[in-house]
């Protein structure tokens, strides 16, 4: 078992993924911890001010309620002015970081050879054929979506969605330029869910859990190229026909109508629900205006549709939601 795991983990091209997992886990923890620490300091400062025991020149150095980044300093460094000479204060750190990275890359390159397989041979398809590791998340989604969605539409939406983030932010003054969690709960959770849950985790699954025929193999399982899994998946309309016993639902026309309705209903309910919730709670998101509000949550609920579709497939064995002669969703 350990042998098998080691075999997979130590494949030269998989080393970067192991490194990526460690670094992502480490830095996510760092960011969240700094945020929580900062939040605590701010709360303390606020209550100190309230009880008028707050003295000027305490370690918190807060002014007009703005957050601090003072969590980074030793008492010694607190004496430095707020703006310092770039040389040597910043250049020193950059120089050190550069040294570490260069030495690290040198060692890595001396002790581990880059992979070079057999010469390219169009007549022999390796099984499994995998995309480069950073695209394996998308390849993993091919299990649940047709190529036009997993390979084209989703990457496009990811890029546009990322670019849109600054313009769909209803509280630009909150958490601008410092670590915090309390002030940006929803933004941070949504981003981390997408980045870690839907991107990094999918990459890891695609790398370590997928064997011949893109079938699921635990890292300690031997890859068996002859394994067959019999899995019958049905489309949504068939699924409904099965549970209601109405035969008419199983026809292609019914599929087109039901699929269309299901997707329209999904967006109507989620977007409508979010809007009602926002109005009830008077969320600052309302200040975005209706159009931007809808775009923001359209992106959000489209992202959430991915895990929903995965669950529908894994739990209810539903293949497509919407089948048409031209495309399937």
């Amino acid at each position: 078992m350990w042998q098998n795991i080691w075999l997979i983990v130590s494949k030269p091209d998989n080393i970067p993924i192991v490194l990526m997992m460690i670094l992502v886990a480490f830095y996510t923890t760092v960011a969240l911890r700094l945020g929580i620490k900062n939040d605590r300091l701010r709360r303390q400062a606020a209550s100190n001010r309230a009880s008028s025991e707050f003295q000027q020149g305490t370690a918190l150095q807060e002014s007009n309620g703005a957050a601090t980044v003072d969590i980074f300093y030793t008492p010694e460094e607190m004496k430095l002015p707020k703006r310092v000479h770039t040389f040597p204060f910043l250049v020193k750190v950059e120089f050190l970081a550069a040294l570490v990275v260069i030495v690290f890359l040198m060692f890595w390159s001396i002790f581990l050879d880059a992979p070079l397989e057999e010469p390219a041979n169009p007549n022999f398809t390796p099984n499994p054929s995998k995309a480069p590791w950073y695209f394996l998340g998308l390849q993993e989604l091919l299990v649940y979506f047709d190529p036009w969605i997993a390979g084209v539409v989703l990457p496009t939406l990811i890029i546009i969605g990322l670019m849109a983030i600054p313009y769909l932010d209803s509280q630009p003054h909150k958490g601008n330029g410092y670590y915090t969690f309390a002030e940006r709960r929803f933004a941070i959770l949504a981003f981390l869910f997408g980045f870690i849950g839907l991107w990094v985790v999918m990459v890891v699954i695609g790398t370590f859990m997928r064997g011949p025929g893109w079938m699921w193999f635990w890292p300690w399982e031997r890859w068996d190229p002859h394994r067959v899994v019999s899995e019958t998946n049905v489309d949504l309309n068939q699924f409904l026909a099965n549970i209601t016993g109405i035969k008419a639902l199983a026809t292609p026309t019914a599929s087109m109508i039901i699929g269309f309705l299901a997707i329209t209903l999904y967006y109507a309910l989620t977007l409508g629900g979010t809007y009602r919730y926002a109005v009830k709670k008077q969320l600052p998101d309302l200040q975005l205006g209706l159009v931007r509000f809808m775009i923001k949550y359209w992106f959000f609920w489209t992202m959430m549709a991915i895990p929903i579709k995965i669950i529908l497939r894994l739990v209810f064995h539903i293949k497509y939601i919407w089948v048409t002669p031209w495309f399937n969703v």
């Binding site: 091209d13 397989e117 057999e118 390219a120 054929s129 995309a131 190529p147 390979g151 084209v152 539409v153």
Partner: peptide, 22 residues
Amino acid sequence: LPWDQLGMWAVTVGTNMARATP
């Protein structure tokens, strides 16, 4: 660029997606 099995098939898998562009 190394023109080995790894690269060629990874790029084949990647660019096959382009076939499905709406």
